[in-house]
Design a protein around this nucleic acid. Structure first.
Lengths: 356, 356
DNA sequence: TAGCCGTGCCGAAAGGTTTCGTCAAAGAAG
DNA sequence: CTTCTTTGACGAAACCTTTCGGCACGGCTA
């Protein structure tokens, strides 16, 4: 006749099964020795009384919360911001969540606080920071408080080994080689001048590739706030050169579309007159006409690697250097070359379907 | 000379400040009466010893974890799945996180477990379920365990008032009226036959609108697994009719692009020959050529409302009926009518910029 | 002066779980 | 028949914070 049974505790389970709390604990944690028959009794008692563990009590006792936090990059408040590749970030979040669950943990998503010192009050076992800014204060704060952290993408000012990154140099070389193989003689780079490793690495690799092939670099910088429009402007300029490029590698998300705008506007065609490749894959690349060849940055693998790395750091392991994830070039019609037929290398479609 | 100071507790703060633990607690929680001078001493002691509260101890004592969980819709494992509007989901997650933080809580993201009963072991104060499936088992499980839950979007089989939804009927009427005003005489609907309230509501509203205007409904259903391709096929069929539509309202994300494919392929133009509107806004709509008029489903507002609603439910309030969020029609070139000049009603650009 | 009240602070218990040390009983070895 | 070992189980402390009741003290009223 009780109005509303209080949530049962391990003690209720113990009395129900006729054993001590210690034994119940041993059973549910698969620790210590316990008679198979007793174990059976305890397990049925658990489901009879409907007990489920309180994470707070466990955490208090063990000193570990069993929670990782993921600090989202800033700017995630507006839909329709061209700078955001929400697919990439969503993939990151979903994959981090899946990976933490696989390691018996939970994932907290935390917007970046106005005051970075609030990060430490999250009171979690570790923090994953996506897209750290240059010399990120958040990392200093976390380090001082002794909170383990790893980043997704390298903070250009940091040298500890606790981050995961893509092989930006390798992917750049791969794209340039691919363009050359498809007949490009003069490849321009459209990128941004911002303090992110992604930009720095790709630019450096481009310079090196050009030097190695004895050609002069041809670079246009865009405004990261308005990638599509400024990329279009930059490419318009390129196409008016006496010796215009016959291929364009556009890095920041959105810029390949700007480049395409300018190319079409000039009366040229892709891939007929100009080959076009993007630095970051996504729906915009697949859905454009023609579809645009782009680098798949492998957010899923990045996320898994980050969670693994953080788990290792939490366990007290020493830094073993950054984890490098290999990228994959998704070849599409925009680089259907003049010398080689197009081979589509789209990944196999995923099993689970979904609406919308 | 201690190798590594253990994390300080409230007791360390107390001794440092020369007061009791009770007083420290009173200070950090702004409860009870404490002399201003004492308060000052305690606060400096807190920062001196670097104390930060342990959420687990608090939670154990108070019986509330201070955590909400958000259960992501399935299917979020692959980038590049056309069915997923990652922007929408990312906005949902980010906004939920922001809202929970505003209410002094934390947000857990939880992939939908294979076994729904695992949901209950999250041990959180409440759960937000995005995109519930028809007669969602997860809700039954949570209800039975007494875990408060709300959903984002209505579960067609449920009648308790604990969900937030968009005004699907209103937005459909708005779109149809807009198309008519821009000169459409015969509007076709491209949608899916799936058990989601979004589809059911819009279809019903379309039928009603048609009846009200004395025109015959013209509907094509697509396969939610391949929205773009099947939408293109459907629209191809429509355009071959003796009396083809002069406007198309395509609901599931991706289908407006399929419609556009078919229209262009048939030698017609948008908006010259056919007006085109989409049921869900996103980058794909903005970035297409021409940009496509679409319904902004307001994920940010949905998320905030969901968190508020869940907070109310956790506090024991009674259901006050579902929360309905008004949508907004984003008018673009694809419905630049023949009778009225185009008025752009794009939302103002967001302040914070971001790369990529 | 006696009684009362408000202020500022404290002691101790409680909340649910894990773990350490202990213990009884039963079997094995001498 | 001892003594030792193994097995299976238990009691109680500890983890950190909040809260309830209470206490001492100074000032006020009657």
């Amino acid at each position: 006749m009780s109005t509303r049974r209080a949530r049962p505790t391990i003690r209720d389970v113990a009395t129900q099964a006729g054993v001590s709390m210690t034994t119940v604990s041993a059973v549910v944690n698969s620790k210590g020795r316990v008679d198979p028959a007793t174990r059976e009794r305890v397990l049925t008692a658990v489901s009879e009384v409907g007990w489920r563990p309180r994470r707070s009590a466990r955490a208090l006792r063990s000193g570990q919360t069993g929670v990782f936090a993921m600090c989202l990059p800033v700017g995630h408040v507006g839909v329709g911001d061209w700078l955001v590749n929400a697919e990439y970030d969503m993939a990151l979040v979903a994959a981090c969540a899946a990976a933490t669950v696989d390691s018996e943990r939970q994932l907290l998503v935390a917007p970046r606080p106005k005051d970075v010192t609030d990060l430490v009050r999250l009171d979690v076992d570790g923090v994953i920071i996506a897209d750290p800014r240059e010399g990120d204060q958040a990392l200093t704060v976390l380090n001082n408080a002794g909170v383990p952290a790893v980043t997704i993408d390298r903070d250009v000012q940091r040298t500890d080994g606790w981050w995961v990154e893509t092989d930006n140099e390798g992917s750049t070389m791969q794209v340039l080689d691919h363009l050359a193989e498809r007949g490009a003689r003069r490849i321009a780079l459209v990128t941004a001048d911002a303090p992110w490793a992604w930009f720095e690495d790709t630019s450096a690799a481009y310079e090196r590739w050009c030097a190695g092939h004895g050609v002069k670099p041809l670079v246009r910088l865009i405004d990261v706030e308005r990638p599509r429009a400024t990329a279009a402007a930059g490419v318009r300029g390129l196409l008016r050169l006496k010796n215009p490029p016959d291929a364009i590698f556009a890095i920041p998300y959105g810029t390949p579309l700007g480049a395409l705008d300018a190319i079409v506007e000039s009366g040229r065609s892709v891939p007929g007159d100009v080959l076009l490749a993007g630095g970051m894959d996504g729906q915009l690349m697949q859905g454009s006409s023609p579809p645009i060849t782009a680098v798949d940055l492998r957010p899923l693998e990045m996320a898994r690697a980050a969670v693994d790395l953080l788990a290792r750091r939490v366990n007290g392991e020493q830094a073993a250097g950054p984890v490098v994830v290999e990228t994959a070039l998704r070849i599409r019609a925009s680089t259907a070359g003049r010398e080689t037929p197009l081979t589509s290398r789209e990944p196999a479609t995923r099993p689970a379907g979904r609406r919308r």
